[in-house]
Amino acid sequence: IEKFKLLAEKVEEIVAKNARAEIDYSDAPDEFRDPLMDTLMTDPVRLPSGTVMDRSIILRHLLNSPTDPFNRQMLTESMLEPVPELKEQIQAWMREKQSSDH
């Protein structure tokens, strides 16, 4: 029984630690959010139409349809242009958020 109590305490400790580690990014500025999924972008790319999306989301879309989801023009992965300035701004915002939450 004592071992179970210790195990339960350890589990509670881990759960509390994980809860502290989770950071809420739901208040991200609109320009940091993917327009299709409304999630925080981690690897922004510009489509030929000028729309900026997260790379993982547009690549997932391209698996089903080789088109720009906003104007239905033909689109391939090679046409995606990285946006390193925005990526750095997002990373800086995330770092600031992490340091203010801890």
Rank of each mutant, 00 (worst) to 15 (best):
31 E>G: 09
3 K>Y: 04
9 E>M: 09
91 Q>S: 03
6 L>R: 15
12 E>K: 11
44 P>A: 00
29 P>A: 03
1 I>V: 06
91 Q>E: 14
97 K>V: 06
99 S>P: 15
5 K>E: 09
4 F>I: 10
102 H>Y: 12
35 P>T: 01
72 R>Y: 01
13 E>V: 06
33 R>N: 06
100 S>T: 07
79 M>W: 07
11 V>E: 12
3 K>I: 02
7 L>F: 14
14 I>P: 07
58 I>V: 03
9 E>Q: 08
64 N>F: 15
2 E>K: 10
78 S>R: 12
26 S>R: 08
49 S>Y: 15
33 R>S: 04
99 S>V: 01
19 A>P: 09
2 E>G: 08
83 V>E: 11
66 P>G: 07
23 I>K: 14
102 H>Q: 08
4 F>C: 09
101 D>A: 07
84 P>Q: 07
71 N>K: 00
26 S>L: 15
96 E>S: 09
17 K>A: 15
81 E>D: 10
72 R>H: 01
92 A>P: 00
57 I>S: 14
3 K>M: 06
33 R>I: 04
46 R>T: 05
21 A>T: 09
61 H>E: 06
37 M>G: 00
87 K>E: 09
73 Q>N: 13
74 M>F: 02
50 G>E: 08
80 L>R: 00
18 N>Y: 09
78 S>W: 00
100 S>N: 11
64 N>E: 07
10 K>I: 04
18 N>S: 10
54 D>H: 01
10 K>T: 12
91 Q>L: 10
82 P>R: 05
18 N>A: 05
9 E>G: 08
39 T>G: 01
85 E>A: 08
27 D>F: 14
7 L>V: 06
36 L>I: 15
19 A>E: 13
20 R>H: 14
26 S>P: 05
82 P>T: 08
88 E>V: 10
61 H>N: 00
26 S>G: 12
36 L>R: 00
70 F>R: 04
13 E>S: 11
77 E>S: 04
39 T>M: 02
95 R>M: 04
76 T>L: 10
52 V>F: 05
15 V>E: 13
12 E>Y: 12
77 E>A: 05
82 P>K: 00
102 H>F: 08
102 H>D: 14
27 D>E: 12
79 M>I: 04
49 S>C: 03
96 E>G: 11
92 A>C: 02
28 A>G: 13
6 L>D: 09
24 D>K: 01
31 E>D: 11
46 R>K: 15
36 L>P: 00
12 E>T: 09
18 N>P: 04
42 T>F: 12
72 R>S: 00
29 P>L: 05
29 P>Q: 03
64 N>S: 05
98 Q>M: 04
101 D>T: 03
10 K>L: 03
45 V>G: 00
95 R>I: 09
71 N>F: 01
65 S>N: 02
23 I>V: 10
3 K>N: 13
98 Q>S: 11
82 P>E: 06
48 P>S: 02
22 E>A: 05
63 L>H: 11
22 E>K: 04
70 F>Y: 15
32 F>L: 05
71 N>V: 02
25 Y>Q: 06
38 D>G: 02
9 E>D: 11
53 M>A: 14
78 S>A: 10
8 A>T: 09
63 L>A: 14
31 E>V: 09
64 N>C: 02
96 E>A: 11
81 E>Q: 09
90 I>F: 02
54 D>G: 02
12 E>A: 08
23 I>T: 13
41 M>L: 05
46 R>I: 07
45 V>L: 02
82 P>H: 03
70 F>V: 00
13 E>T: 03
7 L>P: 07
1 I>M: 10
17 K>I: 09
53 M>V: 15
20 R>C: 07
34 D>Y: 00
51 T>S: 12
42 T>A: 12
73 Q>S: 06
74 M>L: 14
94 M>Q: 11
8 A>S: 14
42 T>L: 08
23 I>R: 10
85 E>V: 13
96 E>T: 15
56 S>A: 08
37 M>K: 01
74 M>N: 04
94 M>S: 03
88 E>G: 15
12 E>N: 01
99 S>T: 13
30 D>G: 08
78 S>I: 05
76 T>N: 08
35 P>H: 00
49 S>T: 09
65 S>A: 04
19 A>M: 14
33 R>K: 12
96 E>R: 04
37 M>R: 01
36 L>V: 15
83 V>A: 07
101 D>H: 06
13 E>G: 11
87 K>T: 10
102 H>P: 10
69 P>Q: 02
52 V>A: 04
12 E>D: 13
58 I>M: 03
6 L>Y: 12
43 D>G: 00
58 I>S: 01
40 L>R: 01
47 L>A: 09
90 I>T: 03
31 E>K: 07
23 I>L: 12
67 T>R: 01
16 A>Q: 03
85 E>T: 03
11 V>L: 08
92 A>N: 05
30 D>Y: 06
99 S>C: 08
33 R>C: 03
82 P>S: 15
73 Q>R: 05
43 D>V: 02
67 T>H: 02
38 D>H: 03
26 S>V: 15
32 F>C: 01
80 L>M: 03
